[in-house]
Each structure stands twice: as C-alpha cells, then as structure tokens.
Amino acid sequence: MTAILWAFDVVLAVTLVALAAGVLATASLFRSIVLFIVFGLTMSIAWARLDAVDLGLVEAAVGAGLTGALLLNTLGHMRSQAEFTPEPSHGPGGRLALALAAGTAGLAIGAAVWAWPDAFAGLGDRVDTHLAESGAQNPVTAVLLNFRAYDTLLEIGVLVVAVVAVWALSPMRGRVLDADPPGLVLAGFVHLLVPVVVLVAGYLLWMGTDAPGGAFQAGAVLAAAGVLLLITGRVAPPQLQAIVERGAVVLGLVAFLAVGVAVMAGGHAFLELPDAWATTLILLLESLLTISIAIVLVILFAGGRTDAAHPPEDAAP
C-alpha cells in the first residue's frame, strides 16, 4: 500500500472519530446535528475506500441526508426548549467510571478484531459460483434480492411498521414544517433539481442489477426529492386516509410476498426465484420497492399523520 493512501486512511479515521466525539460533546444541538450530517458523509467516503460503493450511496442519501433532515425537523419541533442544553455533569468520578466501562468493552472487541485471520473468504466464493443464476451481475443486489431475499422482505416489513408507529404516535398538531414560504433561490433550485433527482433515481434503479445501485439507493434519492417538495410546500403532507399513499406504503411488501408465493406454483420454495425469470422479477421487485421506500422515507420525515381531526395549521395547499 502506498504512503499517500495510508495518510488518507489515517486522516479519514481520525476525522471520523473526532466528528463522532464532536457530535456528542458540542453544547449546541443544531451544531451537533450538522456535525452528525458531516459524519455521515465522511462515513460514505470510508465505504468507498472499502470498495463498498453500494453502501456509500445509501449512507450519503439515507445515513447523512435523511437522518439529518429527520433530526433537524425534530429539533424544529422542540424549539420551545433552549437550543443550548448544557449536559449535567456526572462529576469526574462518574465520567471516569463510564469512560472505563466503554473503553474496556472497546478493548475486548478490539482484541477480537485483532485476532482475525488476515485472509477470510466468507461466503464470497459461494456468491461468485452462483452469481450467473441469480439474475443480477452486481453481487450485492444478487444477495439482497435473491440469495437472502428473506432479509430484504423483512426489511420492507420494518419500514411499513415504522410508518405505522410514527403515524400512531403523532397526530400532527401544530406546524408540519416551517411556515415561511421558500425563498426565490430555494424555489428555483427545487425546480431545477427535482427532474435531475428523478433521473438519477431511475438510473440507479436500472443500473442496480449490474453495478452499484438498486432499489434502496434509488428510493432514498427519490425520497430526497420528496422531502424538498414537502419543505418548499409544493406537495401536501401525506394523508392517512389517502388510499394512494397507503397503497404505496405497502406496495413493495405486497409485491414481494406475491412474488414469493407465486414462484411456489412452479414447484420452487418460498422466495426462490426461477433462474429464467430472475432478472425480470428482480427488476420488477426493485421498481416497486423503490416507490415504497421513497414514500415511506418521505412519510417518516413528515413525521406524523394529518387527518380530519387534527388538520395541520399550515398545511400546504
């Protein structure tokens, strides 16, 4: 390994740990959240460095982008509380005890990592052997949509449950989003950006079977466009009663289950894609999943149901 790459790795690792410490130590919550977003973006560089481009894309869109937007939105709802919240001190003894406990756990896990063998094939060889029959050229997509489709099915289930939980917890009283109308720059920017974002999402979805990308990356990018439209008031917050929204939330899960059961008619096991149909089915599932993931992430951002009993005070027209 060349010296310049080593220097890069050292700087990246130090930056990551320093940003994480900064998130937790900064007195201003707003600054904390901004540092957290920077942390997520820096993580996506680390993913790229580890040849995990799929993860880099998801981290940038979801880990940094959407989680950051969620946190900022919640901070906006909590504005009545002082932004600067000095954390009560545990006293030097308490802090030392907590740091020792966390440090000991870290040493134990670090020792386990240190003892790893240098070469370890894991399941990589088996994935390579069967990649041709998976219907996808990108091994990560092959694992997600074919070899371990169960994981992905349950993941979509988790997203639907999260929407139900968020809707159940928070009838939207008060404001959905800032009442201020968007400035000229933001409004114009959204005009330019949204078509490009939709194009990028479509590209990520289409390329996902052969190259880094796929339903989650495309859905997350599409959700970013949705969030932009929501905060600039161009679309109304998702409605609980609207059959279209409810349909879109469960579309991915229902399609996944339907495909999983339908293949059983041909004598296959649940979710075992027939080789000849695999590419078509993966593309179909990914397209529907993209729609569901995008709408779910936008709903999670909007963070509450709007219904007749609790109309938001400043709902967008």
């Binding site: 995990a52 993860l55 981290e59 880990g63 994935v127 990560v140 994981d151 993941e155 993931i293 992430l297």
Partner: peptide
C-alpha cells in the same frame, strides 16, 4: 474482491437504522 454478504447485511442495517 469483497464478500458481498456483509455488504448486503449492512445495507439492510442502514435502512433499518433510519426507520
């Protein structure tokens, strides 16, 4: 080459974490 199985698991993990 990379082992794609942990990559897929972490991708799932990131989405579950945001939920």
């Amino acid at each position: 080459a990379i082992d794609p199985v942990p990559h897929a698991m972490v991708l799932t993990g990131i989405v579950v974490a945001v939920s």
